[in-house]
Amino acid sequence: MASYKKDYIFYGIVILFAIFFLAATTQIHSANNTATLGPKFWPMMILIMMLVFAFMGIIKTFITHKRIVNGNMTWTEESEEPERRLFNIPLSLISMSSIMLYALGIFFIGFILSTIIFLFVLIQLLGGKKKLLLLILSIVITGVCVLLFSNVLSIPLPRGIGIFRELSFLFY
């Protein structure tokens, strides 16, 4: 994608963001009428400035783009190297989704199980070989975390819900 198109998309998103929050700001009702400056004052100021800068950005991109088309200037286009893929899915998406699933995992099945699975699977996806060694490594790392935080420092790590919650009480 050409760089100027990306700029248009970026400023477009900024404008949408600002308009959405401006609309939300008008819905705010001060919970306390003794204040001199209400709760709307500050965000209004920020959002309006944001809109102004975004429009300035669009104009700037437009002008630079025109100049390039007219041949007065050249873009320094960086070539993007194609991303590494796994099962035909870009790796960035794989790591993003595995983090998301991991975050869901600690909520539902608790810290211990989800961490072991997360480490075991992701290390392999990123290129780790030797399955047995990795399994042991995942369990050891998880064990150290649980021991350090929940047992030594008595900061309970997430337990999960239902049966997983009950199970976690066996460890901490």
């Binding site: 899915i89 870009p90 998406l93 993003m96 989704s97 998301m100 975050a103 869901l104 909520f107 819900i161 239902g162």
Partner: peptide
């Protein structure tokens, strides 16, 4: 394909966010 994949992920995530707020039916 990338976008479709992303939409699925985000919807799963949204459900989870809702769970953060609502009563996560704690079996009493």
């Amino acid at each position: 394909r990338k976008i479709n994949y992303f939409i699925v992920l985000i919807s799963i995530f949204t459900i989870f966010l809702a769970a953060c707020n609502g009563d996560s039916d704690a079996s009493s």
